[in-house]
Computed example of a mutant assay.
Amino acid sequence: MGADAVIDLPSATEAYATGTDGTVGIEEEFMLLDTSTLDLVPRFEELSASTAKDPELAVSVAGELIRTEIEIRSGRGENLGDALEHQRVHRERLFAHAARLGISLGATGTHPWDDYRHQSFIDTEHYRRVVDGLRWVARRNATFSLHVHVGVRDADRAIAVCDRLRPVLPMLLALSANSPFVDGIDTGLHSIRTQTFTKSFPRCGVPDHFGSWKAFCRYLELLQATNSIQEYTQVWWSVRPHISFGTVEVRICDAQSTAAEAEALTGLIVACALQAARDHDEGRPLEPVPARMIEENVWRAIRDGRSGSLVDWDTATEYPAAAALDRLLAWTAPVRSELGIEPVLPDRNGAERQRDRVADGASPAEAFAASVAETQATYPPSAASPSDPQERST
């Protein structure tokens, strides 16, 4: 069994004890596409082998279950800016390798017409465990997302941050929704990725409010003792403490079609995590929101993205989901002003832009092609250079 299969809670406790607030890691998942047809193509091993010859990139490339997907990782950045700089370099080099092989990289939460029944899996011990354990659920999952790690010192504080981020998850999902089409149909939803992944995988979605590291450890020990999990990464919550890295990992967002959106969401997530840590440190009261209420907002975000409404449970009133950004910016203003984080998101997210194109007469395939064109045009650093603050959006 691989090293990532070992649940070493004492080492995890130490990782948090020696950790640093505000380190950042970014993980972006891209689909591998035929450049002419935009069909998914199972060429992960080929692209991975190409990147393996590039010492600056090899350690930053990873597989994600299916052979039509590749993940690019920033590695640990000492702060947001550092992580973004690393990720820009890695993206540029990955896109160059893909282009040389005649592969296009796409970045929406789902592929509009791929037949999941024809997917094949990466042949590693880890993914064999995933497929053996999840069976149809693993085969059905052909999804692409954005994950952000934020360093949080002290294990109890990490749990507190996760607890405080629970009701924030639907807001981040509404802002990032980018998957209206799957299986050759318009689903009527804005994030079918979330419905497919979060509602199918076990130990996924909104976690419980744990309250302490001790309570969280008891839960993991129970899962392991009952053979429910063999490794920690089989806990797939939308926000989780990542015990190998000493971080809080937010996993709710769809993959983003443009670099500016991915970077803005990363900055927003970093600000939310650090503000949650500050609120905990300052003793701000936290009344745990029941999961059933948070899940109601998750469903609204899945269904309508930022075009619908969310519920403010404190006042039992609805508010426009598009206002989620202003609410999060207001909450995180203290941390953002200190760190200079100013996320700028477009007025229409990826799902809305795809739906707008269909409303204007495009087919879902044509709307997807336009999204792929956005990705090809904006992900290389030449289109969003560190020297351009408007494009940097953080």
Rank of each mutant, 00 (worst) to 15 (best):
A330D: 04
S337N: 05
E296M: 13
D312C: 09
A322V: 06
L328K: 03
Q275S: 04
R218H: 12
A316L: 15
A276K: 07
E338A: 03
D281R: 05
E263F: 11
L325A: 11
E295T: 15
N297S: 10
R251C: 10
A264T: 10
M293V: 15
A277G: 05
G340V: 10
D304T: 09
I252A: 09
E231R: 13
C217V: 13
V248W: 01
N227V: 06
R278V: 01
A264W: 04
L329S: 05
P346Q: 02
D281Y: 00
A260M: 14
G267P: 00
P285R: 11
R218G: 15
G305M: 06
S238G: 06
T266K: 07
V270L: 02
Y319L: 12
P290G: 11
E342C: 06
R284E: 09
L220P: 06
V289W: 14
R300Q: 09
V270D: 00
S244K: 14
A255L: 02
L286K: 08
R292Y: 10
A264D: 04
A259E: 08
C253K: 11
P320T: 08
D326W: 12
E287I: 14
P334H: 02
E295W: 15
G305L: 06
R300A: 11
Y219F: 13
A324V: 06
G308N: 05
L325D: 09
T226Y: 04
R303F: 04
P285K: 12
P290C: 10
V239R: 03
I294Y: 11
C253P: 10
A324K: 09
C217T: 15
T247A: 12
F216N: 13
H242W: 03
S257L: 05
G308Q: 07
L274C: 01
Q224V: 11
I229Y: 03
R348N: 09
C272S: 03
D279S: 05
A276R: 06
H242Y: 07
N349S: 01
L328A: 03
S244P: 00
R284C: 02
Q256A: 04
R336C: 02
E352I: 05
A316I: 15
V344S: 06
P288I: 03
V235W: 09
A271P: 00
V248R: 10
A225N: 13
A255V: 04
I341T: 02
N227M: 08
C253N: 11
Q275P: 01
G308H: 02
L220S: 05
W331S: 07
T317A: 12
R292C: 12
A323M: 14
G246E: 09
W213F: 14
S307V: 02
D326L: 12
G283V: 00
A351P: 00
R292H: 13
W213H: 13
T266F: 04
A277E: 10
L286Y: 14
F245V: 07
Q234K: 12
S228P: 00
Q234S: 08
A291N: 14
R251M: 11
G340T: 08
A273I: 02
A322K: 14
I269V: 10
R300D: 08
S337F: 02
L222K: 15
V298C: 10
Y219S: 13
V239H: 06
V335A: 01
R336A: 06
